[in-house]
Simulated assay, not measured.
Amino acid sequence: MSDGGSGEGTSMREAINDALHEELDRDESVYLVGEDVAEAGGSFGITRGLHEAFGDERVFDTPISEQAIVGSSAGAALTGSRPVAEIMYADFMGLAVDQVMNQAGLFRYMFGGEATVPMTVRTVNGGAGFNAAAQHSKSLHGLFLGMPGLRVVLGNTVYDTKGLLKSAIRSDDPVLFFEHMELYNREAEIPEESYTVPLGEAAVEREGEDVTVVANQLMLHHALDVAESIDGEISVEVVSPRTLKPLDVETLAASAKRTGRVVVADESVMQGGPGSYVARRIEEEAFYHLEAPVSIVGVDDTPVPFSPPLADAVVPGPEDIEAAIRALPRL
């Protein structure tokens, strides 16, 4: 179910809040923790009203220490709680890498499979549109793909984000849940009743015949816009991975085999990034069906600038996705 843009409906911000409210209400072992998540409602207003509804013991603030937020959550998860920790920006995840990589991700293995770590870390990827400069604009979901024991999930559409977050909170594995600051105001019609979306399953957001575009977060919406604009000239299938770890290679490869041409668009650095990983897995599984190597649209090896024109030049947009599509042979 793709988003309809900024029309009437539920915003992604509201959908995340609803998911958190529903899970707090459903399971008393769930609690929220982070910087300014209580009375302030979080830096993007995601957790507004939750402290009032559930009190100090279920929704509470921490000092400015990402290590303490993630480390304490990992320990609490071992003892039966289901913490949902908020890290304000993905850029700040670097401060908690040790707790993620050497603690949360390894506990189940180190305890011989008898321990579970049901914790969720919510954080937000950046983008050019907010002009938040180099330390608040990175998209870092790819950083954690090489760390065993973790699940890496992306909020791409309003519908998926709510359902995936609820599944993440119910998972017995540590989940890193990446939202996107430029998608919080997007709106779409979603079911009023509670629902979940399974982790590890991709979604075909638009069917097509000539080329597959695999895209995440804001790039997904750019890809859908491009597909609509060139429909009738080139038939574009758009696939949303939704979960990068584990990656639904089967769905991606099936689409690639049907169309024979693939573009992967991801708002991360291309060198060693998730776009490169996804492209390699598709080529591995669909090699003899491809008319050309998989094309990658991403960020060059550079920080995201503060200057709006420079940021727009660094972070790919719809024109970059369309150019990559048109550059494929036999189109």
Rank of each mutant, 00 (worst) to 15 (best):
A128V: 03
R48W: 05
D91Y: 11
Y89G: 06
P83F: 15
S73N: 11
R151N: 05
G34Y: 11
V97Y: 09
P63R: 13
G75P: 02
E114Y: 13
G127M: 01
S43F: 13
R108G: 09
I87T: 00
G34K: 10
T62N: 08
I46R: 03
N125G: 15
E52V: 04
E114W: 11
F107N: 13
G75Q: 10
G126Q: 02
G49I: 12
Y109I: 11
E39L: 13
H51L: 07
F44E: 04
G55P: 12
G126A: 07
A128F: 13
G113Q: 11
K138N: 09
G155I: 00
A40E: 08
A76H: 12
N125F: 05
V59L: 11
V97Q: 00
A115I: 04
P83G: 15
D56A: 15
G41P: 08
D61F: 13
G94W: 05
N125Q: 04
G71L: 14
L106W: 14
E52N: 14
S73C: 14
L150S: 09
T157I: 07
F60Q: 08
G34E: 10
L154K: 03
M93Y: 01
S65V: 07
S72R: 07
Q99Y: 13
S81N: 15
L140M: 10
E66F: 02
M147L: 05
G129R: 07
A132L: 15
D98G: 00
F107H: 12
H141Q: 09
G142M: 09
D61L: 12
S43K: 09
L95R: 04
R82Q: 14
G34S: 03
Q67M: 10
F60M: 11
L78F: 06
S72Y: 08
G34N: 11
T120S: 05
Q99T: 05
R122A: 06
R58W: 15
A168H: 03
M88R: 11
Y89T: 13
E114S: 15
T62C: 11
A134L: 07
G75N: 13
T161Q: 10
A68N: 09
P118Q: 10
V153N: 08
L164C: 07
V37G: 06
G155K: 04
R151V: 00
A74L: 13
L165F: 07
P118R: 06
G163I: 12
E35Q: 05
D160R: 01
A38H: 10
D61E: 11
G34Q: 09
G41V: 11
N156L: 01
P118I: 10
G49V: 11
T161G: 04
Q67V: 14
A104K: 12
N131K: 05
G94V: 04
M101F: 09
F111V: 08
E86F: 11
M119G: 09
Y89P: 02
K166H: 06
E66Q: 08
F130V: 00
F92T: 01
P148K: 00
G163L: 06
L165S: 08
K166D: 01
L143C: 05
G55W: 15
A77K: 07
V100Q: 05
F111I: 09
N131D: 05
A134N: 00
L145S: 04
I87E: 01
G55F: 14
N156H: 00
A134G: 04
F54W: 13
G113R: 14
P83N: 13
M147E: 03
G105W: 09
M110K: 15
P118E: 14
H141K: 02
V37S: 08
G49L: 12
M119V: 05
I169E: 14
M110P: 06
